Simulated scan of single mutants.
Amino acid sequence: MSCVRKVFDEMTKRSQVSWTALICGYARKGDMDSARELFDKSPKKDSAAYNGLVEEGKMWFKAMGEFGLTPKTEHYGCMVDLLGKAGCLEEAEK
């Protein structure tokens, strides 16, 4: 993670994707303190920022079957997260 963090720190422009990737990296490694610290520092975006990603996320989720992949708990969790952040709470609940 130290190499990843170095690259992140040297980025001149950080997107929501780069923030999310680093936060998730720390979380997956069990370093919740670093993940939470970064989350608190990340630029706050309103739910509209995710709306363009929802349709793409749905498309890739549905396409998993075409690649011979069966969605696992982690995949459903990602969809719930994406839909929730986009304000699609009823769809996320389903």
Rank of each mutant, 00 (worst) to 15 (best):
residue 50 Y to A: 13
residue 72 K to D: 09
residue 13 K to N: 09
residue 65 G to P: 00
residue 7 V to H: 00
residue 24 C to S: 12
residue 11 M to W: 00
residue 4 V to I: 02
residue 27 A to S: 15
residue 10 E to L: 08
residue 89 L to C: 05
residue 68 G to D: 12
residue 26 Y to S: 06
residue 71 P to C: 10
residue 82 L to D: 10
residue 6 K to N: 03
residue 21 A to D: 03
residue 5 R to E: 04
residue 62 K to N: 12
residue 69 L to E: 12
residue 79 M to Y: 05
residue 76 Y to N: 11
residue 11 M to G: 02
residue 86 A to F: 03
residue 31 D to H: 08
residue 45 K to W: 14
residue 17 V to T: 14
residue 84 G to H: 07
residue 7 V to E: 02
residue 28 R to I: 00
residue 42 S to T: 05
residue 46 D to K: 04
residue 25 G to E: 02
residue 41 K to C: 14
residue 1 M to V: 13
residue 62 K to A: 12
residue 10 E to F: 04
residue 42 S to P: 01
residue 81 D to F: 01
residue 26 Y to H: 10
residue 16 Q to S: 12
residue 27 A to V: 03
residue 93 E to M: 07
residue 52 G to K: 07
residue 19 W to L: 08
residue 46 D to C: 13
residue 60 W to S: 03
residue 91 E to P: 09
residue 89 L to S: 09
residue 3 C to K: 10
residue 46 D to S: 11
residue 94 K to Q: 11
residue 60 W to G: 00
residue 72 K to Y: 06
residue 77 G to E: 10
residue 36 R to C: 08
residue 80 V to S: 11
residue 53 L to V: 01
residue 55 E to S: 09
residue 92 A to H: 08
residue 48 A to R: 15
residue 1 M to T: 09
residue 86 A to N: 01
residue 23 I to G: 02
residue 91 E to Q: 15
residue 36 R to Y: 12
residue 64 M to K: 10
residue 75 H to S: 11
residue 92 A to P: 08
residue 36 R to K: 15
